[in-house]
Structure formats: structure tokens, C-alpha cells
Design a protein around this nucleic acid. Structure first.
Lengths: 215, 215
DNA sequence: CTATTTGGAAAATAGCAATTTTCTAAATGA
DNA sequence: TCATTTAGAAAATTGCTATTTTCCAAATAG
């Protein structure tokens, strides 16, 4: 851990129990939970402060407004987003199996309760926070799509798959994999799917798509 | 006190300039526009009343609460939504062409700015108004899905298509067709697609799916 | 004209939640 | 001890908006 070098010479009064960064972290974490379960309008600053174990005064010393707090929490999540979608797409798998593998990873990432919650938040608040929506789209969605598009392009170049436009085709594939469960969950008509449901879906999806596009 | 909408015998005082139903219609129409552009929280009852050309008093005489007004607007839209579901799935087309035809109609319906707006609204408010979300899901989404599932089942029975579960397969197909443009538009990262874009997508989609599932 | 009913305009009420401020109790170096 | 700084708790302030109420002009049957 890094200590605060600043404290070589301690100032006069009562010392902070935590450095500002740590306190901010607690606040953002609490806010994240609240925004995720209650939405923007439904979340009260007082509740966030209580959950974080700080007073509203302290909170406002570190975060100027509720809007800023919201933006910070989303940014925070975006940062953790593009984890390992396809680190291990070994080329020794046959294309159909590799596709299923990729779709499964993609499904696990995008159909997790957290991702579904943040997606709903972004959709709900994109009018109020266009920059946040933009950031989410550019930093979370686009790169993940990029990975899938790259794989598709590789297969096409190898002469294993046949299709017109990579971008559109990738959109078809991703929609096939996640739309139905994601939308249903976002409308709270069902919970997020379990791993085995995702696996099943990945298989069916890979079957249809591979059959539909194989050269 | 009690109104007789027949007005066979006019009561004593000043007559209504419109019957309640008409006034209500004006109100719901105005509310629809407001909710669609400002969302639930962003819509003020006063503004709705002004747009409808009535006073808040009149509004509250016909609609008890803001929540009720919201439900009415959604119900109203659901009504129009289902009217649009024209099931002119002609059987004289070959299956691939018929599929493209269906997907195009489905796309035009679900990718219209209005449908996208209402979908976003439902996603945004489904925590606060679970009944509305359920109504939308049951009255709008399920029936439309039903039409596609019915067609798929017919083709399977004819031995023209091959797949496991109709429900899942229909979900794959619908997701393929609309997710990408719908989600992008809901996040305000792009406008609703035009007819020709929808047509193009329907073609690509039909190609992949038909190839992928033909017997 | 008069009694009676319909709304419109605007003010009043109410409640909630973001943001500020006050008061007070720690801590701690000098 | 004292000066100084950190925070928490709670109260105050502010502003917004849903919902009610008041007051009044319009319309019309009798």
C-alpha cells in the first residue's frame, strides 16, 4: 500500500481517520449499490451518506453534487468492465466450438445482474447524462463488440465464414445471444439468467449462426 | 354530481364544452408527448395540463394521480401497438422471403421512434410501476412474439426448418433483428433506423437465420 | 333575472430531498 | 492548557412539484 508522503510533517489539528481518496471510495461504493437498486431519482444523498458511514457534510466536501456522484459511480464501473472476454480463444478449437466459447464469455459478462443494472441505469438517465451514456457506449460496449468483430474478420479471412458486413453481422450475433434475456431482466419480468442457461443459449446461438455463415 | 353522457335531458348549469372522454383524450395525448420526451420524473403535471389546454383542477377531476396518468398513456400506446400487428404472413412466398417479410414488419414496428421511446420509458420506470411493465410485456411484447413463434412452428411442422425450442429460437431471431439498433437508440447514441436500413437488416438476418435453420 | 353548474387562473398547501449551516465532540501538535 | 483541525448529528434553507383550494367568469335552464 502507498502511504501519504504528505504526512512527513503532520498538520496541527485532528488527523483525518482516512485519506480523502479512501473516504471517496466508500462513498462511491455505497452510491453504486443505491443507484443500482433504486435508480437515480430514487436514491437519496442522505441514505448514501449513511451507508458509507459518513455525514452529508463530509460527502459534500468530497463530491460537489448528486450528479457528479452518479457520474463517478458509472465511470468507476466502466473501468472494471472490459475484463477478459476472449483472452483464451485458442485457435486449436474448431470454429463452431470457439464461437460457442466466445458467446458464453460474452453472455456471462453482459447478462450479469450488475451489467444489466448499469445498462438499465444508462438507458434511464441518458437524457440527463448524455456524457455518461456516451462514455458507457464508447468505453464498454464498443470495445467488447470490437473483440467479436475481430474474431469474425479472422474467420472470414481464413475462408471459414462467409458474410457481407462485419459490423452488421456482429450486431446480429450479439443481439441473438443477449437481447431476449437482457431486455426481460431490464423490465424486471425475470431475474438475470444463470450460468447454465447462458451456456445453453450460447450453444443454440452458435449452432444457428455457424450453420448460417459457414463457408 | 352524476353525469349522464347521453345528455338526452340537459342539466341545469353551464354545459361542458367537451364530454369527459374527449377531455381525457386531450390530456392523455399531451401526457404521452411529455412523458416520451421528458421521462416520468421530468414531466410536470402543470405542463401537461397547459399542453392539453385544461387547468390542473380539470385534470385532477379526470385523473386521480400522476401515476394513473402514466399508466393510461402506456395503455393507450399498447392499444395502438397491437393494432399495428398486421399478420399478413402470406404463405405463397418461399420461406426465406416470407421470413424476410416478417422480420421487416417486426423491425418497422419495434424500431419506430415511438416504440423505442415507450420501451425506454418502461425500462426506466419498471421499478416504480411494476404493473405497467407487466402490462407492456404481456400486452405488447408477448403477443408479437407469439406471431413469430407461430410462423416458426408452422415451418417446422412443414419440415422446412429445424430447431429445438421454438421459444428460445424465436428469441434468438428477434434479438438478431432488433437489439443492436434498438439499444443504441435507447442510449441516444443514434437515431431510430430508417426503412431501408431496416430492410437491409431484415435481409441479412433472414439469410443467416434461414441458412442456419433450414432442414 | 336567478339559481346552478362548469371550468379557468392562480394561490395555497404539503412533502420531499438536495445542499448548507450550526453546534459540538474528538484529536493532537505546540 | 490551547489553538487548530476534523467530522458527525441535526437543524435550517431552498427549491421544486404534486395535489388542493379559492375565487370568479361563463353559460344556461327556468
Amino acid at each position: 500500500m502507498r502511504q501519504n508522503h504528505e504526512t512527513v510533517k503532520r498538520s496541527r489539528g485532528r488527523p483525518q481517520k482516512r485519506c480523502d481518496a479512501d473516504t471517496l471510495h466508500l462513498i462511491v461504493e455505497a452510491a453504486d449499490r443505491e443507484f443500482q437498486s433504486k435508480g437515480y431519482a430514487g436514491t437519496s444523498i442522505m441514505t448514501v451518506a449513511q451507508r458509507a458511514g459518513v455525514s452529508t457534510k463530509t460527502l459534500y466536501k468530497l463530491v460537489a453534487t448528486k450528479a457528479e456522484l452518479f457520474e463517478r459511480t458509472i465511470q468507476d464501473r466502466i473501468g472494471r468492465f472490459l475484463l477478459d472476454v476472449v483472452d483464451d480463444v485458442s485457435d486449436d478449437l474448431d470454429p463452431r466450438a470457439a464461437l460457442e466459447h466466445i458467446l458464453f464469455a460474452f453472455g456471462v459478462l453482459t447478462l450479469s445482474p450488475e451489467t444489466i443494472a448499469i445498462t438499465r441505469l444508462v438507458i434511464s438517465e441518458c437524457e440527463r447524462f448524455p456524457e455518461v451514456a456516451r462514455a458507457f457506449y464508447q468505453s464498454a460496449i464498443v470495445p467488447v463488440n470490437g473483440i467479436i468483430e475481430a474474431w469474425l474478420t479472422t474467420q472470414k479471412d481464413k475462408g471459414l465464414l462467409r458474410f457481407d458486413d462485419v459490423h452488421i453481422t456482429s450486431g446480429l450475433l450479439r443481439g441473438m445471444m443477449i437481447m431476449e434475456p437482457q431486455r426481460t431482466a431490464m423490465m424486471a419480468q425475470r431475474g438475470a439468467p444463470h450460468r447454465d442457461e447462458i451456456a445453453l443459449r450460447a450453444r443454440q446461438c452458435a449452432d444457428v449462426f455457424y450453420n448460417g455463415c459457414k463457408a
